[in-house]
Design a protein around this nucleic acid. Structure first.
Length: 606
RNA sequence: GGGGUGUUAGUUAAGCUGGUUAUAACGCCGGCCUGUCACGCCGGAGGCCACGGGUUCGAGUCCCGUACACCCCGCCA
């Protein structure tokens, strides 16, 4: 038998034709006489019928069929007349079997292969090849395949060359933790798995390739999250002789083509931009979800003006102290937040390291109730805060104060939590994938070049050491490095960072100053980044680029709940593969060949 | 490293303030049934209640620990 059609394509047009279908038994309805089988393949379902008068042999075979048997049938396409099944695209017809073959029987599957996925993810991952049979599990992967095709097409069209870079690279300090690979041929030495092609793509620019892209795996040995896997895929690109606007133009064209070709949605451009500083100030992170409000208000200066406002836990705010801030967020009266619910918010805040969650409910007179602050707050300060945050009667004001990063983490997450709880945004995914307004794209631009490392008591690169400072900030490189902003940009979609990049620093003189600001001398720089620094001295062109997270893009486009849903064989939060049981043990011979000794406590062998 | 949620037939769940035989649906097995499409009807099998301790006359239920999965903080662009 040779397959003539898929299980998703037969319609009334094929009536009367003899066809051969291959697939899996999706469902069976055995009436003793006639046996109905829903035959499934990637393309869909077709009802095939073993009729009572089909002959003894066929009848016996039909009764033998069980779920997930892999079979082939030859038969005639027949109109279902009055028995049309409107739920199936192929519901107008059925195939009356004249010949059938069982290619392979199946054990009873551990879960049903159906669209409704309520099986524990642990189980699904253990039998991932069965889980992947589910049409609903296949759908995001089909979408991703399409996105790959569109990406290649758009970028090739725009003159980008698809060039490959090594995975086995030299470890470079800073940034994400690398996976290490022992080098058998060089005893005691290690490769690192590339966390990104960053340095190599810059070398492509030095080499004059002008425009490079790659859909490429990256590896980072960091803790996992809903949107983070240890190996993931980036659409990585780099361009010579470009400004930030040039990069944005290409990326917006690519992203809009993806939404147009894959989802059939026309996203308006250009995408809005927001300074990093504004994002941190109003949303507490660098990837704000602008589909809803609940902005944060900074009260640090106000508290200083009111000498701590009479509240003992705010007394340290009477004098401004670096790194310490006070912020508030207003939950509108319309949210109808109960006291219990507010208490629960405090638990969430504490879970994120907050000491507590001071809050105040504003009454008709502007007084505060249900609040530990109510007694001590000075009336002046209360009125000033009410005015600053725009609180109306019935509103609840939530406060966080202390270390800047801590305050931002807590308030940013509370904002997201409330956005979902109050129904301002869905739990996950876009409200309506077909509605352009459900997709909030945003460029977050011009973050600081350096951040101050409290532990090392010095400035370190916020991104990497080769990001170009803004020209107007070059004057502060020596005097006030923290003030220098740079040509770094992140693309944000619905609160997820889906891409990030920068215009690179190609001027050796400025580069030297940047290193100096971080306390890195010429020798140390040479030792850490030697080959790149050397390359930049041979007439390197101005260049810049970006990397887009293909997994996150696919997750968002397919309205999936997790990155795992767009990766065929994902890892668990502890980095294991429940199907293959990776990572596994290495035997002593292997370790010996690799010149490796394990210091891990030896595990009991079964 | 830390916080939270969960773990009961193959699967998904119920199981109350601890009480003697741990339920249901789907799946599975057997039988019956020409028109079903979540087919139907009759019968049946199937449990280390995640694991290890403890409290108790008695633990699926309460307590402690461990493992695993998920979400989050730290970490990570």
């Amino acid at each position: 038998m040779k397959r003539t059609h898929s299980c998703g394509e037969l319609t009334a047009r094929e009536t009367g034709r003899e066809v051969v279908l291959f697939g899996w038994v999706h469902n069976r309805r055995d009436h003793g006489g006639a046996v109905f089988i829903d035959l499934r393949d990637r393309a869909g379902l077709t009802q095939v019928v073993f009729e009572e008068d089909a002959g003894k042999e066929l009848q016996e075979l039909a009764h033998e069929l069980r779920l997930e048997y892999c079979i082939g049938v030859r038969g005639k396409v027949v109109s279902r007349g009055a028995n049309v099944n409107p739920k199936l695209p192929t519901g107008e017809v059925e195939v009356h079997v004249t010949q059938a073959q069982i290619f392979n029987r199946s054990e009873t599957p551990p879960f049903l292969i159906e669209d409704r996925i309520d099986t524990a993810e642990e189980k699904r991952l253990h039998y991932r090849y069965l889980d992947l049979r589910r049409p609903a599990v296949q759908r995001p992967l089909l979408l991703r395949s399409r996105a790959n095709a569109v990406t290649r097409s758009v970028l090739h069209e725009r003159g980008f060359l698809e060039l490959e870079t090594p995975f086995l690279v030299k470890y470079t300090p800073g940034g994400a933790r690398n996976f290490l690979v022992p080098a058998r041929l060089q005893p005691g030495k290690f490769y690192a798995l590339a966390e990104s092609p960053q340095l190599f793509k810059q070398l492509f620019m030095v080499a004059g390739f002008d425009r490079y892209f790659q859909i490429v795996k990256c590896f980072r040995d960091e803790d996992l999250r809903l949107d983070r896997q240890p190996e993931f895929t980036q659409i990585d690109l780099e361009m010579s002789f470009v400004s930030q606007d040039d990069v944005f133009a290409v990326v917006e064209e690519l992203v809009r083509a993806l939404w147009r070709e894959v989802l059939g949605v026309e996203i308006p451009g250009p995408f809005p931009r927001m300074p990093y500083d504004e994002s941190m100030r109003e949303y507490g992170n660098d990837k704000p979800d602008l589909r809803f409000g609940l902005k944060h208000m900074d009260l640090t200066r106000l508290l200083a003006e009111h000498r701590g406002a009479g509240v003992s836990m705010w007394s340290s705010f009477a004098q401004p102290s670096p790194g310490q801030i006070a912020k508030a967020m207003v939950v509108p009266a319309s949210a109808g937040l109960s006291r219990t619910e507010t208490d629960k918010l405090e638990e969430i805040a504490k879970g994120m390291g907050a000491k507590g969650l001071a809050r105040a409910k504003v009454d008709e007179q502007g007084n505060w109730t249900q609040s530990p602050l109510a007694k001590s707050i000075t009336p002046d300060a209360r009125a000033a805060i009410n005015a600053a945050v725009g609180a109306k009667p019935g509103d609840v004001i939530l406060f966080q104060f202390g270390k800047e990063a801590q305050v931002h983490t807590v308030l940013a997450n509370l904002r997201l939590h409330l956005g979902k709880k109050l129904g301002l945004i869905p739990e996950y995914g876009p409200r309506d994938p077909k509605d352009p307004a459900s997709w909030n794209f945003l460029w977050v631009v011009n973050p600081p070049l350096f951040e101050f490392d409290e532990e090392q008591k010095k400035y370190v690169a916020a991104h990497h050491a080769f990001t170009r400072p803004r020209d107007e900030d070059l004057q502060y490189l020596d005097s006030d490095p923290g003030r220098v902003l740079c040509h770094r940009y992140d693309l944000v979609l619905n609160g997820f960072e889906i891409g990030g990049g920068s215009i690179r620093l190609h001027d050796p003189a400025v580069q030297q100053k940047v290193f100096a600001a971080m306390g890195i001398g010429p020798e140390e720089a040479e030792q850490k980044f030697g080959f790149l620094l050397q390359a930049l001295r041979f007439g390197a062109p101005p260049h810049g680029g970006i990397a887009l997270g293909m997994d996150r893009l696919s997750m968002l486009m397919s309205a999936s709940e997790s990155l795992r849903d767009v990766i065929p064989f994902p890892k668990t939060q502890k980095g294991t593969d429940l199907m293959t049981d990776a990572p596994g043990d290495a035997d002593p011979k292997q370790l010996h060949d690799l010149h490796i000794t394990s210091t891990a406590k030896s595990q009991e062998k079964a």
